[in-house]
Write a protein that binds this DNA or RNA. Structure first.
Length: 885
RNA sequence: GGGCGCUUAGCUCAGUUGGUAGAGCAUCUGGUUUACACCCAGGAGGCCCAAGGUUCGAACCCUUGAGCGCCCACCA
């Protein structure tokens, strides 16, 4: 006799089971040409982070997909890894140094990098174990790291190729500069914060200009006004001498439509070195571009007496000076605008010009360039020349890549359409060093895959490698193929790429997903993945973002320790839908803990019955046929939902079936009469279907279910259930469902009539066509409805002094004389009659409507007719009963 | 300013080709029944944001509006 604990204890099983799966190699697919591959590249967590709910969600969803496909016969690869997360990691280590009163410059580049490496190695271990805790069935033997030698080589290879194609260029341009990180940022790495500040109206010769940043204005020499602005028409095209901060300067007036007549005074001076719009204007008209603020965030020499001050101090002092000069017209105190800030550290961004590396997103290449191998990347695409942007757009537009939910298509297109050249150089140390070498002697520039020491042109050894590193997204953009061995033509790459699903949060659609599409189509001529599944953000019960400062964060690892990994997974998947934020709270997790326990007990109970029964009956009872049929429906629904990426619906179905069908009915019925073969079959199916969602408890049960067999199989590698048409019994199912209705009715009457729950009462059922089925199940009905005596007949007399209920033409009487207040019963009947009358009226109205009968589909009309017929029968019975009272 | 999403039971959410509104939690009543109190049985609870329109029929489709949230652009 198997002795299992009354409650499932996750701690007792999880680690052990995970270890077994891993050691036995279930996570590691062998390439098999006869099988279809199913690949997911795991979005690499930052190498320095710890697991948060976003990761937990990602892991839960991906593991469900992978486990399902693995069981369904695919060669399933889930490739894990970590990201070196350039700026984020460097910031973290700098923070640690800061506590010791040091900066990275105190250590120097090499020593600092050693320190970061050490730190990363430690954190990677943490992350790996946390990923395991979630039950992730990923292939650790293929684990990757964005900064490994192999991936770095891939990075250099792509860089070189893009450089040779003229896609990567170095340019002196205006960029987003974070003075704290001491680095550039890509456009989408800048976020905005609504801020209230002062707005200064300053006298500039004959006009008044408005600005929130007077400290940038030292060298402004051009006034822009709108061509239609009557106020300033007289000045346009003129040059005049005006009094400015450090004496007289010459200012030019130019008309351009960018000037907004409504904004401020309608006149503006421009600062090309520190504003994107102004920079473009300066290029358009060929104005001088004079830097005012340095990369350290301090004022340059052009600021005269203010040189060397930080921006804030300068502003205060400058405004005082200008007030003294009478240059300040007025100051608006409540100016609200969006301040651009660094998404990593929150420091306000300083746009400034500098030499940087860019990817040209608009350079066009001829068709032949894109048509590689046997790809149909360009399918249905007209035209002769395409940029990386065009192709990235096309693969989504043409449906080669599908985004779930598709409402994000528009967002994607909009972003792609407006994409400007991508600044890829960063001035931090932690990251892939740009593989460009300059010869100090002859000035020759070389882009090399491996480190070089000699100039290829003049043989000088006086070389200097570019100091900058690459944007972290450059390397992660290669993730789907660099992790499979590219640029080597590996078997993995050939077999597993393109991958099938990219699953990640919608918040990195641009940062990452879009860039992967760009890089994969450019480099391989292949899409990186077929489907993008975007999950939402996890919020607290009030819908707030979880954050340390609010203290409302839930640590997935705490929850796993408390409830187990299965409940955490279930609560992150069920009740959520792709692209939509979800709310998580402990009660929800504990609810799924209860479910896991329910499943455990259902198995425990089933096993007792299976074990204690020697003979196997080949006869199928009504209940057996019913549960078999319901099981087939379940298989079909769950499979369809999973194929459709509707994980929540799939999980919900499993939950509902397990609890409300299998446990509440079939197991209860089994207490009267049980069929071990059927019990085993249904339990088996449930375990398999539930396994992707709650892998641990299902595997634990599956092991126990094999009792003392040698060479136990593991659920993880079992075959996904198929529907068996010969196990569908429609008539029996209908009959069983009516019997369930009858039992429910009796229970309901008992409760409403306040009959002592332990009292075994008597019942009459006139079953009409269902009579023989009822007779077969009479013991079941007696038990589940708690009846002492049950009289079943085809039809018969009304029973005096009884409470009655009618289901279609079936009549139920409970002789409760002395136990029930018949006045109340009379009221109940009246109410019932009213409900039925209203219902019948509504149905008749509908059926008398010629439009309905002629226009609605036949099956709908027929359905309504049946409903009417059965309601009428019931009403007649109810009314008869009322008349008798 | 441009775009997207949400608004359904007290709470969190389903409701996919338009056909008498659903689940979980919470709540109420009752319960030591051959698994499970992390349980069982039963009940109550909804002008499906508002107003129009299409339709025989609308939570669902269309228009407008309100409230909430998000993304993008930009404010010199």
């Amino acid at each position: 006799m198997t002795e299992l604990a009354k409650a499932y204890d996750a701690k007792k099983y999880e680690d052990e089971i995970y270890k077994k799966w891993e050691e036995l190699g279930f996570f590691k697919p062998e390439i098999d040409p006869s099988k279809k591959p199913f690949t997911i590249s795991m979005p690499p967590p930052n190498a320095t982070g710890t697991l948060h709910l976003g990761h937990a969600t990602m892991l839960a969803i991906e593991d469900i997909l992978i486990r399902y496909k693995r069981m369904a016969g695919f060669c399933a690869l889930w490739l894990p890894g970590t990201d070196h997360a350039a700026i984020a990691t460097q910031n973290k280590v700098e923070g640690i140094l800061q506590k010791e009163g040091k900066t990275r410059h105190d250590l120097g580049r090499d020593k600092f990098l050693e320190k970061v490496k050490e730190y990363v190695a430690n954190s990677q271990d943490t992350i790996r174990n946390q990923v395991r805790k979630m039950g992730s069935s990923c292939d650790w033997s293929r684990e990757a790291y964005t900064f490994s030698d192999q991936l770095s080589f891939a990075v250099n290879t792509v860089f070189k190729r893009m450089y040779q194609d003229g896609l990567i260029y170095r340019g002196h341009r205006i960029v987003n500069w974070c003075p704290r990180c001491q680095s550039t940022l890509a456009d989408d790495e800048v976020t905005y914060k609504e801020t209230k500040s002062r707005f200064y109206y300053i006298k500039y010769g004959p006009v008044i200009i408005g600005t929130a940043r007077p400290e940038t204005k030292f060298a402004d020499k051009v006034v822009i006004v709108h061509p239609d602005d009557k106020r300033y028409k007289k000045y346009v095209g003129k040059e005049m001498e005006i009094d400015w901060i450090d004496g007289k300067i010459k200012a030019k007036f130019v008309a351009d439509e960018v000037a907004d007549m409504e904004m401020g005074t309608g006149a503006m001076t421009i600062t090309p070195a520190h504003s994107f719009v102004d920079f473009e204007l300066a290029q358009k008209y060929g104005f001088e571009i004079i830097p005012i603020i340095g990369m350290d965030g301090k004022m340059l020499d052009v600021a005269g007496e203010f040189a060397g001050m930080d921006v804030k101090t300068c502003r205060e002092k400058l405004v005082k000076k200008m007030q003294g000069q009478g240059l300040i017209d007025k100051i608006d105190e409540d100016y609200v605008h969006n301040l651009s800030i660094c998404y990593r550290c929150g420091t306000s961004i300083e746009p400034l010009t500098s030499d940087q590396w860019f990817i040209d997103v608009n350079k066009k290449f001829p068709r032949e360039k894109w048509e590689k191998k046997d790809n149909n990347l360009l399918k249905d695409l007209e035209g002769t020349n395409f940029s990386i942007k065009d192709i990235a757009n096309h693969v989504v537009r043409s449906g080669q890549i599908k985004i779930v939910p598709n409402s994000f298509d528009k967002t994607y297109f909009h972003w792609m359409d407006n994409l400007r050249d991508w600044c890829i150089s960063r001035q931090i140390w932690w990251g892939h060093r740009i593989p460009v070498y300059y010869c100090k002697d002859c000035g020759h520039i070389m882009v090399e895959l491996d480190k070089i020491t000699v100039c290829e042109k003049c043989s000088s050894v006086n070389l200097r490698q570019d100091e900058d590193t690459l944007d972290t997204w450059f390397s992660s953009a290669l993730w789907t193929f660099s992790t499979l061995g590219w640029p080597n033509e590996t078997e993995d790459l050939k077999y597993f790429h393109p991958t099938q699903v990219m699953e990640t949060g919608y918040d990195i659609l641009f940062f990452w997903v879009a860039r992967m599409i760009i890089m994969s189509t450019y480099t391989l001529g292949e899409i990186p993945f077929e489907t993008v599944y975007l999950h939402g953000l996890v919020r607290d019960k009030e819908g707030r973002k979880m954050s340390k400062s609010l203290g409302n964060g839930i640590d997935p690892l705490d929850m796993i320790a408390k409830f187990g990994a299965d409940p955490v997974r279930l609560s992150l998947v069920i009740g959520t839908s792709p692209g939509n934020d979800m709310r998580l709270y402990e009660e929800k997790i504990s609810g799924y803990r209860n479910f896991v326990n329910k499943l455990w007990n259902a198995a425990r109970f089933s096993m007792m019955m299976i074990e204690n029964t020697k003979e196997n009956s080949s006869d199928l009872s009504l209940a057996d046929k019913w549960i078999m049929t319901k099981t087939q429906t379940l298989i079909e629904e769950v499979t369809d939902f999973l194929n459709d990426f509707r994980l929540s619906d799939a999980g919900d179905k499993i939950y509902d079936f397990t609890w409300n069908v299998f446990c509440d009915w079939y197991l209860e019925i089994s207490k009267v009469h049980h069929n071990p073969a059927i019990l085993k079959y249904v339990l088996d199916v449930v375990l398999k279907l539930a396994h992707p969602f709650s892998p641990f408890v299902t595997e634990a049960i599956f092991q126990e279910l094999q009792f003392n067999e040698e060479n136990k199989k593991m659920l993880i590698s079992e075959k996904w259930p198929n529907i068996q048409k010969d196990l569908v019994f429609e008539i029996a199912t209908k009959q069983m469902e009516t019997i369930i209705d009858i039992i429910k009715s009796i229970r309901s009457i008992r409760a409403e009539s306040k009959v002592d729950p332990v009292k075994k009462i008597q019942a009459y059922i006139y079953g009409k066509d269902l009579t023989s089925a009822l007779l077969a199940k009479s013991e079941v009905i007696k038990r589940l409805a708690n009846l002492g005596e049950l009289i079943i007949a085809q039809s018969g007399q009304k029973i005096e002094d009884s409470v009655s209920k009618f289901i279609g033409d079936i009549e139920i009487y409970l002789p409760l004389s002395g136990l029930v207040d018949f006045k109340k019963e009379f009221e109940r009947l009246k109410k019932e009659a009213k409900r039925l009358t209203d219902y019948i009226t509504a149905l008749q109205l509908k059926l008398n409507n010629n439009n309905f009968v002629s226009k609605a589909p036949e099956h709908v009309v027929e359905e309504q007719r049946q409903l009417l017929k059965s309601a009428k029968t019931e009403l007649a019975k109810v009314e008869e009963q009322i008349n008798k009272s």
